[in-house]
Computed example of a mutant assay.
Amino acid sequence: MPVLPGAEPYHHDGGTVGVLLCHGFTGSPQSLRPWGEHLARAGLTVSLPRLPGHGTTWQEMSRTRWEDWYASLDKALADLRGRCSETFVMGLSLGGCMALRLAEIHGAAVQGVVAVNPSIVNDTPILRLAPVLKWMLPSVPGVAGDIKMDGVTELGYARTPVRAAATLPRLWKLVQTDLDKITQPVLVFHSRDDHVVKPASTAFLRARMGDNLEIRELLDSYHVATLDNDATAIFEGSLDFIRSHASVPLTKDL
């Protein structure tokens, strides 16, 4: 299946500190590419894979599930760990959720987590009917492109495959159940005006996590904040986060 132009994965070989970036549901690496390039310029090794079924057609994505997306990230993390002495995981939306899952599973092998508008709570009531709807309704209107900045677009699907979406509640439940396993530092960027992920996800993290959680509010961006007005704050904030929590120096510092 041909990959949409601009949806290709991004990789950069830098220093001994590595970062795995996880894009969101129905999105593509395009939404995180500027973030990855910013970290690469600081001397970091960066891995930004394209999740299975993404960046092609929603019909292809309909044949995948969260386990497929997570498995690709788990493989990318293993590769990064083989080349770097320390690794951080970061993600947008559902990518933030899967970044948290990687931290739960791999423990100290993940040095820290940065999540932008993470989705970890089922705040869409229709998803409760998805196991039945998927047999009658192949897709619903998409959620990509929630950006405040004029003239900026996200490369994502205009339709959301119901069969793929029906697998999400299981992932959310696992992440919620195992949150206490995360002892690493976690930085969350939360858009005050988000038309995709409701405040319940950030509120859940705030209620369940301890002093290792820091939440920073974004005042001038919508859901895809990595392409929006607050992108620079995310890029620089995540780089400062790495500098604060990496025990080895970056090869190249800004």
Rank of each mutant, 00 (worst) to 15 (best):
residue 1 M to P: 09
residue 1 M to Y: 12
residue 5 P to I: 05
residue 5 P to Q: 10
residue 7 A to S: 12
residue 12 H to Q: 11
residue 14 G to C: 07
residue 14 G to A: 03
residue 16 T to W: 13
residue 17 V to M: 03
residue 19 V to N: 02
residue 20 L to V: 07
residue 21 L to P: 01
residue 25 F to Q: 04
residue 28 S to R: 07
residue 30 Q to A: 13
residue 31 S to H: 05
residue 32 L to P: 02
residue 33 R to I: 06
residue 34 P to R: 04
residue 34 P to D: 07
residue 39 L to W: 07
residue 40 A to G: 08
residue 40 A to D: 03
residue 41 R to P: 03
residue 41 R to Y: 03
residue 41 R to G: 08
residue 41 R to M: 06
residue 42 A to L: 11
residue 44 L to D: 13
residue 45 T to N: 06
residue 45 T to P: 06
residue 46 V to K: 10
residue 49 P to F: 12
residue 49 P to T: 09
residue 49 P to E: 11
residue 50 R to W: 07
residue 51 L to V: 06
residue 55 G to K: 13
residue 56 T to G: 13
residue 56 T to V: 13
residue 57 T to P: 15
residue 59 Q to S: 10
residue 62 S to L: 13
residue 65 R to G: 06
residue 65 R to P: 00
residue 65 R to L: 01
residue 70 Y to E: 05
residue 72 S to Q: 12
residue 75 K to M: 15
residue 80 L to F: 11
residue 81 R to C: 13
residue 86 E to H: 09
residue 87 T to P: 05
residue 88 F to H: 11
residue 89 V to H: 02
residue 91 G to R: 01
residue 94 L to K: 14
residue 96 G to K: 11
residue 99 A to P: 14
residue 105 I to W: 15
residue 107 G to R: 08
residue 112 G to D: 09
residue 118 P to K: 01
residue 119 S to I: 00
residue 121 V to N: 00
residue 121 V to Y: 01
residue 121 V to R: 02
residue 122 N to P: 11
residue 127 L to M: 05
residue 129 L to W: 09
residue 132 V to L: 11
residue 133 L to S: 02
residue 133 L to P: 06
residue 134 K to M: 05
residue 136 M to W: 10
residue 137 L to V: 14
residue 138 P to K: 02
residue 143 V to C: 11
residue 144 A to L: 11
residue 147 I to D: 01
residue 147 I to K: 00
residue 149 M to D: 02
residue 149 M to R: 15
residue 150 D to M: 04
residue 151 G to F: 00
residue 151 G to T: 03
residue 156 G to C: 04
residue 158 A to N: 13
residue 160 T to P: 04
residue 161 P to Q: 00
residue 162 V to M: 06
residue 163 R to G: 03
residue 167 T to R: 03
residue 170 R to F: 02
residue 172 W to Q: 05
residue 175 V to M: 03
residue 181 K to W: 11
residue 182 I to Q: 12
residue 182 I to H: 13
residue 183 T to L: 10
residue 185 P to V: 10
residue 185 P to R: 08
residue 202 T to K: 02
residue 202 T to W: 00
residue 203 A to S: 14
residue 203 A to P: 05
residue 205 L to S: 05
residue 208 R to N: 15
residue 208 R to I: 06
residue 210 G to Y: 07
residue 211 D to W: 07
residue 211 D to C: 12
residue 217 E to N: 12
residue 218 L to T: 06
residue 219 L to V: 06
residue 228 D to C: 09
residue 229 N to P: 04
residue 232 T to A: 06
residue 232 T to K: 09
residue 233 A to D: 15
residue 233 A to Q: 15
residue 236 E to Y: 14
residue 239 L to P: 03
residue 239 L to Q: 07
residue 240 D to A: 15
residue 243 R to S: 15
residue 244 S to I: 05
residue 248 V to C: 13
residue 252 K to D: 14
residue 253 D to C: 15
residue 253 D to G: 14
residue 254 L to R: 15
